[in-house]
Design a binder for these strands. Structure first.
Lengths: 101, 101
DNA sequence: CGTGTAAGGAATTCTGACACG
DNA sequence: CGTGTAAGGAATTCTGACACG
């Protein structure tokens, strides 16, 4: 599917500490941890300390933009689960049509 | 040139701490720091602490393989500078032919 | 609700050195 | 030469709480 399957997961590998994420996003560590509490981000934990991926960083930047526009964390969360449902539906449909065509 | 110019530098962005690099490569922190001393890797420094890229991680894995084959750090270094010279030459030639064709 | 901050502790990283070989 | 380790300190991260609004 992709030209460089390995490179692809550079984006998703959770290796970045919160300090670096803070620098990259311009968000405070407090904000980043709070967004986790509100279930907007899901870092890995390596013995207590949080590890984020580049995808997480991008996602946090989107969140930062939405927050600036006055969107609440609750609304952002709603939007996320909604998109998730849509993606799952699409997956279902793909599986469905793949089976019978 | 590339489909996703931004994604591309996920590979080169120096954001990974030495502990994670150690886990990723299987090398000890001592080894990783020593290879830096021998000028085989060049992490960024953010206020003292080293930050590596995924490219650095890959490079360290190659180094680990060479070391297992008995190649000395000095020889690895030689090989690196040699490759660098070749790449620079190629750049020169590209510039040269670009100018006159 | 969303974020700042001070507090105390735990985990991480750093350097220079001694050791072995 | 290449790597391990103990040592002491510095920087990072963590949690729970109080504050403001």
């Amino acid at each position: 599917m992709t030209a460089h399957p390995q490179e692809d997961h550079y984006k998703y590998k959770k290796v970045i500490s919160i300090g670096v994420v803070s620098e990259l996003t311009g968000l405070s560590q407090r904000q980043i941890r709070y967004y986790e509490e509100r279930k907007l981000v899901f870092p890995d934990r390596s013995k207590g300390t949080r590890k984020y991926s580049f995808a997480d960083v991008e996602h946090l930047m989107k969140i930062a933009n939405q927050r600036e526009e006055g969107v609440s964390t609750w609304e952002i969360r709603q939007e996320m689960t909604k998109e998730l449902r849509e993606r799952m539906l699409k997956g279902q449909m793909n599986a469905h049509f793949r089976r019978r065509s």
